[in-house]
Structure formats: structure tokens, C-alpha cells
């Protein structure tokens, strides 16, 4: 039995990728859950908002690169993020003004909002295509690895290597910082508390003199920021392809619902739960079994599900939650 190599392999193939993917999902799910908490609908345009924000960030990155500006070992995209967030926030506020506010005044049923968000999704998708096309773009520059396989082997003398990509480390670090700022905002500032109050009890918030339009605007700005950051990190880590951002909608929704729609802590927990399940279930465990039980020669890859079906994992998690606990693990606001 070779526990050390097994642990390294698990870290390398499961824990690190899942933590970084989980961080990206958590940021995405936070955006969905905030919108849900304040505006009370599932925003189907969120995936394409992420794509749009990322596209702007990429364009800004190219601009910076053309000017010869870089961040050394870090991706230049970090420097371009504020541009992406600002433009996305403006677009998202514009859609609220032009689309959603009308239904808010009408007090339309949630499903109409969902429908409208599908229309917005089309628009966002079209804008993204116009801006950057449908092809794949890789825009990560700077140092590729924090730790690469060979250094790790030299350092530890183990047979199994471990790689920790800059983009993975960045995803986790950025998520921690963003979540910390967000929770500080929600729990410590007057505006943040007003948002929570509005999400808790809309009528009472109105009675207390909280301006609903201001809360809604703030929510959109935060959601745009979260979407752009999540999208950019996802794009840095994998590659930017607009269609992937439509597909990531399902794990994001699953994460938000698992945690309880409207509950920010739940969204984070849900993001990591979905990411770890997805990767653990689609990872071929044969190699690790080989370290742990050298005498056992399994026939297959010991892979529970092919990676093509990773979305099925989110779906099954979603179904299980809907069956047994529709309000989510951390008591969301819906039934």
C-alpha cells in the first residue's frame, strides 16, 4: 500500500481541480441566489451574462497586452476585470430598466420573469457572439504553474506528480476574497443589511423606508460583478467558449438550489458540493486503487460515470434535493 502517492494523486486529480471549479461555481451560484433572493426569479440569463462579462474582459486583456502591459506571473485578465465588471454592470442595469422593471411594477408572476430572462439570454448571447465570435479563446498568460509536476517530484521524491496551476490557485484565492467582501458588505454595511432585509420580507422592508429600486440596482451590480469574475476565472482555467457558459447554467442552478435558493452561504456550499461530486464521480479511480491495493487488478477504469455525463451529476443532485428537501440544505426561501 502506498498511501502517500495515493494522497498526492487524489489531490492532483480530484481535490485541486474540484476546489477551483467549486470556487467558480460558487461565485456563479452566488449571483443566481442573490437575484433570486431580491427579484425572486431564476435568472436564465446568468450563464450568458458570465460569458458576456468574460468577453469584455478578454477584449480589455487584448488591449492591455497590445499596450505591453502585463501583471508578471499573474494573468493580465485580472487587470482587465474591472473593465469587464463595469461594462457588464451597465448592460445588466440597462436590461433591468428596459425589461424587468416593467414586470416588477406589474407584480407579474415569477415565471414571466423567467421567460423575460430567456429573452435577455438571447440578447446577451448575441452580443457576446458579435463581440468575440463563437470560437474558443485562451487568454491566460503569465506563469502557468504555481507548482509543476517535475518540481514537485524533485522536491518530494514521490513517483506521483502534482500540478497546481496558477489559474486554479487564482480561482480559489479570488473566491475567498470576493466572498469575504460580499459577506462583509451584506452583514456589516447599511446597504447590505437593507438588501438582506428586502430579501427576507419585502413588505416590511418597504414599510421601513428601504428603497426597493436601490436594492434592486445594487443586486444587479453585485450579480454582474460576481458573474464577470466567475466567468473570467472559468475561462482562464479552461478556455473561453460561449456555449460552455450556457452549459454551466445547470451546475450553477443545482448549486444554488442545493444550498437553498436565496441563501448565500448555501450557494457557496452548493458550489463546492456539486464540483466535488462531479469530479469525484467522473474521475477514473483505477490509478489510486493501484496505489492502495497493488494486488488488485480491476478490469475497468473504476470510473462511475464518463466525463461526458458530468452534467448528469448536477442533475441527479438537483433531483435528489427536489425530492427530499426542496428548500435546500440551508433553508432557502422557496417551496
Amino acid at each position: 500500500m502506498d498511501i502517500l502517492n495515493a494522497v498526492v494523486a487524489v489531490l492532483n486529480f480530484v481535490v485541486i481541480p474540484a476546489a477551483s471549479y467549486g470556487a467558480q461555481l460558487a461565485l456563479g451560484a452566488l449571483g443566481v441566489t442573490l437575484i433570486y433572493g431580491i427579484l425572486r426569479f431564476s435568472n436564465f440569463a446568468h450563464g450568458d451574462t458570465m460569458a458576456f462579462g468574460t468577453a469584455i474582459t478578454i477584449l480589455a486583456t487584448w488591449g492591455l497586452q497590445a499596450l505591453g502591459i502585463s501583471l508578471g506571473p499573474l494573468p493580465t485578465a485580472l487587470l482587465a476585470l474591472p473593465v469587464g465588471i463595469a461594462v457588464t454592470a451597465i448592460i445588466v442595469l440597462a436590461t433591468d430598466r428596459a425589461v424587468y422593471r416593467f414586470y416588477r411594477v406589474q407584480k407579474a408572476v415569477p415565471i414571466i420573469f423567467v421567460m423575460a430572462s430567456v429573452g435577455v439570454m438571447f440578447l446577451m448571447n448575441g452580443f457576446t457572439r458579435l463581440l468575440i465570435g463563437v470560437d474558443e479563446h485562451r487568454f491566460a498568460d503569465g506563469a502557468r504553474f504555481i507548482i509543476n509536476v517535475r518540481d514537485f517530484r524533485d522536491m518530494t521524491g514521490l513517483a506521483e506528480g502534482l500540478a497546481f496551476k496558477t489559474t486554479q490557485g487564482l480561482s480559489i484565492l479570488m473566491a475567498v476574497i470576493v466572498v469575504w467582501i460580499l459577506f462583509w458588505f451584506l452583514n456589516r454595511t447599511r446597504s447590505g443589511k437593507a438588501m438582506r432585509a428586502f430579501s427576507d420580507n419585502e413588505d416590511l422592508a418597504l414599510l421601513s423606508g428601504i428603497d426597493p429600486e436601490k436594492v434592486v440596482r445594487m443586486t444587479w451590480i453585485i450579480a454582474a460583478g460576481l458573474a464577470t469574475i466567475a466567468g473570467t476565472l472559468y475561462g482562464l482555467d479552461k478556455a473561453f467558449k460561449p456555449f460552455n457558459y450556457f452549459q454551466i447554467l445547470l451546475p450553477i442552478f443545482a448549486a444554488a438550489i442545493v444550498g437553498g435558493l436565496g441563501n448565500p452561504v448555501g450557494a457557496i456550499a452548493g458550489g463546492f458540493l456539486v464540483a466535488f461530486s462531479e469530479i469525484a464521480i467522473t474521475y477514473p479511480w483505477r490509478k489510486i486503487a493501484g496505489y492502495l491495493f497493488p494486488d488488485w487488478q480491476p478490469d475497468g477504469l473504476l470510473q462511475l460515470l464518463g466525463t461526458e455525463y458530468k452534467f448528469a451529476v448536477s442533475f441527479v443532485i438537483l433531483i435528489v434535493v427536489l425530492l427530499f428537501r426542496p428548500t435546500g440544505l440551508f433553508r432557502g426561501k422557496s417551496v
Partner: peptide
Amino acid sequence: SDYLAIATLG
């Protein structure tokens, strides 16, 4: 109502 939407998406 949104849950059906999300489940069918899946």
C-alpha cells in the same frame, strides 16, 4: 414554477 424549468433544462 422555476424548478420545472431548471429540471427540464437538465
